[in-house]
């Protein structure tokens, strides 16, 4: 019998207590590795890092990094998640489930904000910033009312969420299974059947228009590109374009490109290179961007470089909450990529 088979059989025989190292595969994790990935937080506070932040600090971070999707006070833009309000609404016909009205534990907010936010730039916030953001979310939910309130690892567990007691373990096995484990009628089960609701009346099913159904066609009706002035397009450096596509991952949470691109948190960027600033008629620009547009500013390579290096250096009051690209090679690549989507 092969050694491998013997090991296999051994693995099957050992039941009950889970014993270590049957196969000797893998290696021991270093403490730095575990520390780097084990950032999860539990309701009992296990995992909370040392740090603190005030409501006022949180408001600043929120305005800069969160408000573009979640709104200035957590009220949300479009269909992005609402973070505030909805208090006492859970039994209503249209409940509003927010961090304040629904989330049972504050630890969940800390854990989630660090691991997944801001959307498209996860795990970039310092622990002080996360404490400040959680404090601000408490503030917009009226859980705390003092802008000087400081949330820290010291007082974190003293904050109680209003819906902490609002959850119970799955009870389908008691409440539903006995009821639905049943014998059924097969013949002459009812006399009359009437239609009581129709999807056609609601009419929310996506329709594929004739244009969209013609699939691989090159027409591009959804995208309206406004190119004010024709700029001669140089031959593209494809390698740089490919690098730029990778850099663009930092942008795509807010900006779309390609045949199906639509405006979202930011305007779509098809045709952006060589176009006038603020030229997308369907997008609601910031005052700063509108002012730049009225001055006739163009998205040429130079202006794109200044803007993408540090947005507020070019347009002071832009809403774009992006800190900028530090490396010149990233700037070269992204500009080449934006050219490629403008051809």
């Amino acid at each position: 019998m092969s050694k491998f088979l013997k090991v296999l059989i051994a693995a099957c025989v050992i039941a009950g207590p889970v014993s270590a190292g049957t196969y000797g595969l893998g290696r021991t994790a270093t403490s730095d590795e575990v520390k780097a990935w084990d950032t999860d937080i539990r309701p009992d506070g296990v995992g909370l890092p040392v740090g603190s932040g005030t409501v006022a600090q949180g408001e600043e971070v929120f305005a800069d990094k969160c408000a573009a999707c979640h709104g200035d006070f957590g009220e949300a833009v479009g269909r992005w998640p609402v973070l505030s309000g909805g208090h006492g609404s859970l039994a209503d016909d249209r409940p509003v489930k927010t961090v304040g009205s629904y989330w049972p534990y504050l630890s969940t907010a800390y854990d989630y904000i660090y691991r997944a936010m801001p959307f498209g730039n996860a795990q970039s916030l310092s622990s002080d910033e996360v404490y400040a953001l959680v404090a601000y979310i408490l503030y917009v939910n009226d859980t705390v009312d003092d802008e000087a309130f400081t949330l820290s690892n010291e007082n974190f567990l003293s904050v109680e969420q209003e819906n902490a007691g609002g959850f119970f373990m799955d009870n389908r096995s008691e409440v539903e299974y006995p009821k639905f484990t049943r014998s059924v009628c097969m013949d002459n089960c009812k006399d009359v059947v009437e239609i009581t609701a129709r999807a056609a009346v609601v009419d929310v099913t996506p329709e594929e228009t004739a244009a969209a159904a013609a699939e691989n066609s090159t027409t591009n009706e959804e995208v309206e590109t406004v190119v004010v002035e024709e700029v001669a397009m140089p031959v593209l450096n494809e390698e740089l374009v490919a690098k730029g596509a990778k850099v663009f991952k930092k942008c795509k949470a807010c900006h779309k490109v390609g045949a199906k691109a639509k405006n979202s948190t930011g305007p779509h960027l098809n045709g952006i290179f060589g176009s006038a600033v603020g030229a997308n008629e369907k997008f609601k620009y910031s005052k700063g961007m509108k002012a730049a547009a009225s001055e006739g500013l163009m998205w040429d390579a130079e202006n794109l470089r200044t803007f993408l290096k540090k947005p507020k250096d070019l347009i002071k009051k832009t809403k774009m909450s992006f800190k900028g690209l530090k490396k010149d090679k990233d700037l070269d690549a992204i500009i080449e990529y934006l050219k490629s989507v403008s051809n």
Binding site: A91, Y102, D170, N171
Partner: peptide
């Protein structure tokens, strides 16, 4: 851990405003 996907989401809100979890 009671993380986001098992508190805010993937919990089943009942008519009385309480919610099933897990």
């Amino acid at each position: 851990w009671h993380h986001r996907e098992e508190t805010s989401k993937y919990t089943d809100l009942m008519e009385d405003g309480t919610a099933r979890r897990f």
